[in-house]
Amino acid sequence: AEDTGVRVELAEEDHGRKSTIALRLWVEDPKKLKGKPKDNGAIEFTFDLEKETPDEVAQEMIDSGFFHENDVKIVAKSIRDRVALIQWRRERIGPALQ
């Protein structure tokens, strides 16, 4: 995934069975953001792979004051890259897990 300066990783082990997954997001390189992030804590949240979109979560993070409005695209892209990797892996190892 492209280095957006915002890191998103799994916050729990993914067994490929649940549609919701816990993710953790934090800022690795504040210089790549347009606005100044509130604090550089790691933000943990659950994401529904089937019903939700990265853009929705990114906007909720902006609403909650974690990021500046101008950074919604970077935050959404970082989440999207990680979610795509999770879904790609689930398709590869999914059958073995069932």
């Binding site: 934090w26 804590g41 790691a42 933000i43 993070m61 609403d63 909650s64 974690f66």
Partner: peptide, 27 residues
């Protein structure tokens, strides 16, 4: 190790915890 919690109006819970020092410098 302080944890803060923000619940968005749409109901999603965001839990903020300090980023482990090692992860901050990792690029």
């Amino acid at each position: 190790n302080s944890l803060t919690q923000v619940v968005h109006s749409a109901g999603r819970r965001f839990i903020v915890s300090p980023v482990p020092e090692s992860r901050l410098r990792e690029s």
